[in-house]
Write a protein that binds this DNA or RNA. Structure first.
Length: 649
DNA sequence: AAAGAGCTCGATACGCTGGT
DNA sequence: ACCAGCGTATCGAGCTCTTT
């Protein structure tokens, strides 16, 4: 039997974490949009899937290329912080937002926040263990090549535990005293956030002094996976979460625990009961998540305005932190005509105006009026799809939501209480009686599924089709080309396989282990698939990536109308191509023979040679051989083409 | 001749009304 | 409360006319 060598990437975790950090900062390769509070956040499905089985299930069950997930009742600020938490493992949360943060984190099943009731509290025991492990890890000289038995080498889980964990923490033996380690765990380098205008905290059992103290404390959440922590992931239970006040005061927001209110200084060493409690029980004793109906009248579809909507310093900070995630791609630049519902009556009578952020316009009027405003409509273009739970929707030409069910689209007819009634969009044309009722819980009640027609209404007229093709092209180009850049820099296979190990190693139970493994497999498969697809792209397509990046930059500089005209002209030229039927379409739906024409249009735009995308593109132009790879993707391309051509027809 | 503006008309979508 | 039907506003394609 030959000995095998276990190769350990010394900085693997750091690299992964920094990679996430980089993607988070730059907003590269985003492939999912989260809509909350009428604002958008761009993220990566892989990251969300890793961090949340909830998201994982969504992505698995809805294999949409770029899904848009609407998060009702989720504050934009909180979601920014949650994303930061997922990407970095560290986030600063104002204590006034902590409850909501925790609650939403649990609702979204974000690991590290979603506490398993059956598991013991993670705080104290993990605090001690992680700290000791942390020291051990840092002191230990990492060995890049170490001998191991073939068995251990073949077991990824074991690998991680043996390399980064000298002693696997026992989750069933909570350590009673952990406080001495607490101050050392406050590692956030950024403690500059302040909350001068914190809202009042309505906790009757907390003294005014404590309130005042607490009001100005931000809390530093730490969890596994943080690049900033400089620790090995396996040092922690994956679900561990520790919360520390900036000034080392442990938060004592539990209303019933008045006895602990006085230990302002002593709670550092007191082993706060907070750590010993289930997070959900502790943080959410009386919290009720009121279902809000967000009237999107006031939705600021211009992403630039998202930055201006922060009403608090923390919100501003969160917005700034998430700003890089936001896709600056502005569909409006392509002439998409969003017909928003200005000044129309809206909303649910059961909601209160205060529950509506962002100047939400609430009316107590008839439910039958202002149908569209009962929907959370993401800022997407006509014809684009999004999901709300199990329901699939698309946007009509006029910006109204259309329910997509069984291949047919249904326009909303009226709303009663918690139900929405939809009728077939072709009811008028064919006198179709098909009706569908949906509930606010996302269930579909098919009233009449008998369509007297087979035709599916074309929701996209030519201009919209052009715009959609352009949007898809840009999205695909951005995703694929940037994937090339990144995947060529990194060893994708290694990352994918090691990520599987990483995630699996962080699991605490066999069931969780399997879950994590599944998630990791999905992620690895996605990465590998992405790598295969991306590597096959030829360098001509880089021009289009360049085009995309330039457009993103120019949107803030050039007049939109000029750009719209150019886009439309480009697409018009493409549509008039003479050999459309002879060639395989590109992934973006553009025929290869149209590339030159496309590129001419692209070149006509103002170019920014200093941009990173431009430079990288140029580099690859000179170094990457033309693989002539369009045929490599012929299957997917043909699927894409079929899908779009079917819509066009 | 090419490009743009204006007009017409059919298709589509919205939301109101009345019936059950 | 639910369903069915209809009026009408809006949109877009295509055509014609005007301007350059």
């Amino acid at each position: 039997m030959d000995d095998e060598f276990k190769l350990c990437w010394k900085n693997f975790q750091d690299n992964i974490a920094s990679g996430f950090q980089s993607l988070y900062d730059r907003g590269d390769l985003v492939d999912v949009t989260l809509a909350c509070d009428g604002k958008l956040l761009q993220a990566h499905k892989i990251v969300l899937a890793i961090c949340s089985p909830y998201f994982q299930e969504i992505f698995v069950t809805n294999p949409c290329k770029h899904p848009i997930i609407i998060l009702k009742d989720v504050s934009y600020t909180i979601m920014c912080e949650l994303l930061e938490f997922m990407y970095q493992g560290v986030v600063n949360v104002k204590h006034t937002e902590l409850q909501a943060f925790m609650k939403i984190g649990q609702l979204l099943q974000i690991k590290g926040l979603a506490t398993n009731n059956s598991s013991p509290p993670a705080g104290p025991s993990l605090s001690e263990k992680s700290n000791s492990n942390h020291n051990t890890t840092e002191e230990k000289e990492p060995s890049q090549v170490s001998r191991s038995t073939p068995k251990s080498a073949a077991s990824p889980n074991h690998n991680d535990s043996t390399t980064s964990n000298t002693e696997k923490p026992s989750q069933t033996t909570p350590a009673p005293t952990t406080s001495s380690n607490t101050p050392q765990r406050v590692q956030s380098p950024d403690i500059s956030m302040s909350s001068p205008a914190s809202p009042s905290l309505n906790i009757s059992s907390v003294t005014q002094k404590q309130v005042e103290n607490n009001l100005h404390h931000n809390f530093h959440l730490t969890t596994a996976g943080s690049s900033g922590l400089k620790r090995h992931l396996s040092d922690y239970n994956s679900d561990s979460l520790s919360i520390y006040s900036r000034n080392k005061n442990r938060r004592t927001t539990m209303p019933t625990d008045q006895s602990s209110d006085n230990n302002e200084g002593s709670d550092v060493g007191g082993g706060s009961s907070m750590d010993q409690m289930n997070a959900e029980d502790f943080f959410m004793p009386h919290m009720s998540m009121v279902e809000g109906r967000y009237d999107l009248n006031s939705v600021k579809r211009d992403s630039s305005e998202h930055h201006l909507n922060a009403n608090s310093p923390s919100a501003a900070a969160a917005a700034a932190a998430a700003a890089s995630l936001r896709n600056s791609f502005n569909p409006a630049a392509f002439g998409l005509d969003y017909s928003f519902y200005k000044n129309s009556n809206s909303g649910s009578a059961s909601t209160i105006a205060q529950e509506f952020p962002n100047e939400l316009n609430i009316s107590s009027g008839d439910y039958s009026k202002g149908f569209a405003n009962h929907m959370d409509i993401p800022p997407i273009g006509p014809g684009e799809h999004w999901f709300q739970g199990k329901l699939e929707f698309m946007l009509s030409q006029r910006g109204k939501p259309l329910l997509v069910h069984d291949g047919h689209t249904f326009g909303i007819q009226y709303v009663r209480k918690d139900k929405k009634y939809w009728q077939c969009n072709l009811s008028r044309k064919f006198n179709c009686k098909a009706r569908v009722t949906t509930t606010d819980t996302g269930e579909i009640i098919v009233t009449n599924n008998e369509h007297c027609h087979t035709e599916i209404r074309q929701h996209l007229r030519k201009d919209y089709q052009r715009n959609k093709v352009m949007m898809n092209a840009l999205i695909n180009l951005s995703t694929n080309r940037l994937a090339v850049e990144n995947l060529r820099r990194h060893n994708v296979n290694s990352i994918a396989s090691n990520l599987s190990n990483l995630v699996a190693a962080s699991a605490g139970s066999p069931l969780a282990l399997q879950s994590h493994m599944d998630a990791a497999n999905v992620m690895a498969g996605t990465l590998l698939d992405l790598g295969k697809r991306s590597i096959s792209l030829d360098n001509e397509d880089h021009m289009k990536m360049n085009h995309h990046h330039q457009q993103q930059q120019q949107q803030h500089q050039d007049q939109q109308l000029t750009q719209v005209n150019q886009e439309n002209r480009a697409m018009h030229n493409l549509e008039e191509g003479s050999s459309l039927h002879d060639e395989q379409p590109l992934d973006c739906g553009i025929r290869s023979s149209d590339r030159e024409r496309f590129e001419r249009e692209v070149r006509s735009y103002k170019q920014d040679p200093s941009s990173e995308a431009y430079n990288s593109t140029q580099t690859h132009h000179s170094t990457t051989p033309n693989s002539g790879s369009n045929n490599n993707n012929s299957h997917e391309n043909s699927e894409w083409a079929c899908k779009n051509e079917a819509e066009i027809q």
